[in-house]
Amino acid sequence: MATLFIADLHLQTEEPAITAGFLRFLAGEARQADALYILGDLFEAWIGDDDPNPLHQQIASAIKSLVESGVPCYFIHGNRDFLLGKRFARQSGMQLLPEAQVLDLYGRKVLIMHGDTLCTDDAGYQAFRKKVHTPWIQTLFLALPLFIRRRVAAKMRAGSKAANSSKSLEIMDVNPQAVIDVMEMHRVQWLIHGHTHRPAVHELTTNNAPAYRAVLGAWHSEGSMVRVSETGVELLFFPF
């Protein structure tokens, strides 16, 4: 048996192939897992649990079916779906986790997170993140009519795309010292995260010992997952 980790699917109605691939994954590979962890950006955007988008209900039903089959599913918010709330969690059967969580998996202590908080060189993004995670701002936004929230979200996505186009790849990647600091703070030798869309397993040193950082890939043209079992930790890719 194994525990599976995925992130950055960015599900949206405009990308039906990715949705179909995820549904096949939930009905296939995921059914054999001890647990499934979704480390953020499951959806391209999330404007509230009251959004009647049929895609959301389809995904909630599929995850619920996985959970009812005996495979628990856990979710850490990403930078695209940080407003996903308790209502959707109940509908899908997912359990919401804090932005950083330490797991004990087959004798390994593993820290999991979305990964955006590690990109400390991107000062503009970190300032934006701090603002949109302010509770009163979130409450105010969610109180707006849906059509206004859709307009605001579309404008924010366009602004983010424009801003990122002028940033270097290095600025948008994790800061190496931030990675070491968070792993030493949590006293772990393994970190799994997404966000950067740069799948790889990096070797480093933390807590005066060899350590590893596994980065999940985004689901653009193929699926990506990290599989943790008694025998090891693998970064895997598979067709939709």
Results as ranks from 00 to 15, higher is better:
residue 197 H to S: 06
residue 40 G to W: 02
residue 117 T to H: 11
residue 71 V to Q: 08
residue 71 V to E: 09
residue 172 M to T: 04
residue 26 L to G: 12
residue 180 I to W: 06
residue 22 F to W: 13
residue 88 F to S: 12
residue 224 S to A: 06
residue 17 A to Y: 11
residue 111 L to C: 12
residue 130 K to P: 13
residue 93 G to P: 04
residue 70 G to I: 10
residue 163 A to I: 05
residue 203 E to H: 10
residue 159 G to K: 01
residue 87 R to A: 05
residue 212 Y to H: 15
residue 74 Y to P: 08
residue 100 A to C: 14
residue 77 H to L: 02
residue 182 V to H: 07
residue 98 P to K: 05
residue 54 P to N: 05
residue 189 Q to E: 15
residue 13 T to H: 10
residue 211 A to G: 15
residue 110 V to D: 13
residue 235 L to R: 03
residue 22 F to D: 11
residue 6 I to A: 02
residue 92 S to P: 12
residue 109 K to W: 11
residue 152 V to M: 15
residue 189 Q to V: 14
residue 146 L to S: 13
residue 63 I to P: 05
residue 95 Q to H: 01
residue 61 S to C: 10
residue 33 A to Q: 13
residue 86 K to V: 12
residue 10 H to T: 08
residue 88 F to D: 10
residue 208 N to D: 09
residue 58 Q to I: 04
residue 196 T to H: 00
residue 49 D to Y: 01
residue 127 A to E: 15
residue 125 Y to I: 06
residue 207 N to Q: 11
residue 200 A to V: 06
residue 14 E to I: 11
residue 239 P to F: 04
residue 44 E to W: 06
residue 66 L to H: 07
residue 45 A to Y: 11
residue 204 L to G: 10
residue 163 A to L: 06
residue 194 G to Q: 00
residue 79 N to A: 09
residue 175 N to V: 02
residue 119 C to P: 11
residue 90 R to N: 00
residue 67 V to T: 00
residue 72 P to K: 13
residue 203 E to I: 04
residue 123 A to G: 10
residue 124 G to L: 03
residue 147 F to P: 09
residue 139 T to D: 15
residue 140 L to W: 07
residue 221 S to H: 06
residue 209 A to L: 12
residue 18 I to K: 15
residue 86 K to R: 13
residue 32 Q to H: 03
residue 111 L to F: 07
residue 65 S to C: 05
residue 223 G to L: 09
residue 212 Y to C: 13
residue 45 A to H: 10
residue 175 N to T: 02
residue 181 D to H: 06
residue 2 A to S: 14
residue 224 S to I: 00
residue 48 G to S: 07
residue 185 M to L: 15
residue 25 F to N: 14
residue 23 L to S: 09
residue 53 N to I: 10
residue 110 V to H: 01
residue 123 A to L: 06
residue 134 T to Q: 07
residue 60 A to G: 12
residue 20 A to V: 06
residue 84 L to I: 05
residue 159 G to F: 00
residue 25 F to A: 12
residue 190 W to D: 09
residue 174 V to S: 10
residue 221 S to V: 14
residue 27 A to Y: 11
residue 58 Q to H: 14
residue 222 E to T: 15
residue 222 E to G: 05
residue 173 D to C: 03
residue 106 Y to D: 12
residue 94 M to C: 13
residue 89 A to N: 07
residue 65 S to N: 14
residue 21 G to N: 00
residue 233 V to I: 12
residue 152 V to G: 12
residue 159 G to I: 10
residue 21 G to R: 08
residue 34 D to V: 13
residue 162 A to W: 03
residue 119 C to E: 00
residue 27 A to I: 12
residue 111 L to E: 14
residue 106 Y to P: 14
residue 83 L to C: 09
residue 108 R to D: 07
residue 145 P to F: 10
residue 76 I to E: 01
